[in-house]
């Protein structure tokens, strides 16, 4: 394999991988504060991309993206307030079914609003044919946008959780909800906020990736599965590990095509990886077995 081809596969893998990682971080934020796996996480990515495309008809691109992120945050907050906030000690099965139902409804609404046409945002800089040469391979500038924006999200999030009072309060809720409540933290609001935060980063990911992969109403399920694979691969709840796991999965996928594996089986590969990890190391590649056994799955 020539260097050019090799670096192209690497970049393709990294691009997809970092998107998976962002979806996985969305899972982790909600999982940490509530113990819920939000099966509608992929729908946030779809909503972000689709609403940005619609807003872009009337607004310049940056404003359209900001509007789309705010809109998706609103949806995230509404979901939590209307469907989850007031449940008393819901069982895991009940929450799973509720979020699955929500993802179906969001998808069906999107189908009736936007139809089943495939759309895309315009390239942020340049156009389809413009390219930058890195390591001898022509790379679309949009790939660099994806990498830059997603890296920013990861760095800002870790700064947010480390240094801001709000981030600290969310972490307190994650580690011990009762103790946090006793310290005067409104745990319910933290849960709402975690839904808004993960909706927001999902929407940003949906916007930056839209020019490359296009957006359509049913893109959410596939992304949610990949994102969950990555979250489990890294160890549920651990966001930095999710980035490493995401890049790993993206590169494995890219090279599975490179060695001639049929494209149709690409999803099957990542799901098989998920199954194997679940069976062999359910606490993830980087997770701690003892810590995981304390959590209720």
């Amino acid at each position: 394999m020539s260097l050019e081809l090799f670096s192209q596969y690497i970049f393709a893998g990294i691009t997809y991988g970092i998107i998976y990682a962002i979806v996985a971080i969305g899972f982790n934020i909600i999982y940490n504060t509530t113990g819920i796996i939000n099966f509608a996480q992929g729908e946030f990515v779809m909503l972000g991309g689709m609403s940005a495309i619609t807003l872009n008809y009337y607004l310049p691109l940056p404003l359209a993206i900001i509007g789309a992120v705010l809109f998706t945050m609103l949806i995230g907050a509404l979901i939590e307030i209307v469907f989850i906030r007031w449940l008393k000690n819901p069982s895991v099965l009940r929450l799973i079914i509720i979020t699955i139902g929500l993802s179906i409804i969001i998808r069906e609404i999107a189908l009736h609003v936007w139809g089943d046409t495939v759309r895309a945002l315009p390239y942020f800089t340049g156009n389809v044919v413009s390219s930058v040469t890195i390591l001898g391979a022509p790379i679309s500038p949009q790939v660099l946008w994806v990498l830059a924006v997603c890296s920013c999200i990861v760095i800002l999030l870790s700064l947010f959780f480390k240094f801001t009072p709000l981030g600290k309060e969310m972490q307190a809720c994650a580690s011990n909800r009762l103790a946090a409540t006793l310290c005067g933290i409104n745990a319910k609001n933290m849960v709402t906020f975690s839904f808004m935060l993960s909706a927001a980063i999902g929407a940003v990911a949906g916007c930056v990736v839209s020019p490359i992969t296009s957006s359509e109403y049913d893109m959410g399920t596939g992304l949610a599965i990949k994102g969950f694979t990555v979250a489990v691969l890294g160890g549920l709840g651990n966001s930095l590990a999710a980035v490493a796991a995401g890049l790993l999965l993206g590169i494995i996928e890219a090279f599975s095509i490179a060695i001639g594996f049929p494209l149709a089986f690409q999803d099957a590969i990542s799901i098989s990886i998920l199954l194997v990890i679940l069976f062999v190391r359910p606490h993830g590649l980087f997770g701690n077995k003892e810590a995981a056994s304390l959590k209720e799955f």
């Binding site: 599965i225 359910p282 799955f297």
Partner: peptide
């Protein structure tokens, strides 16, 4: 159990 079982069967 729980989420993991749901995701594994979905997969």
């Amino acid at each position: 159990k729980g989420h993991y079982l749901a995701m594994a069967t979905l997969g």
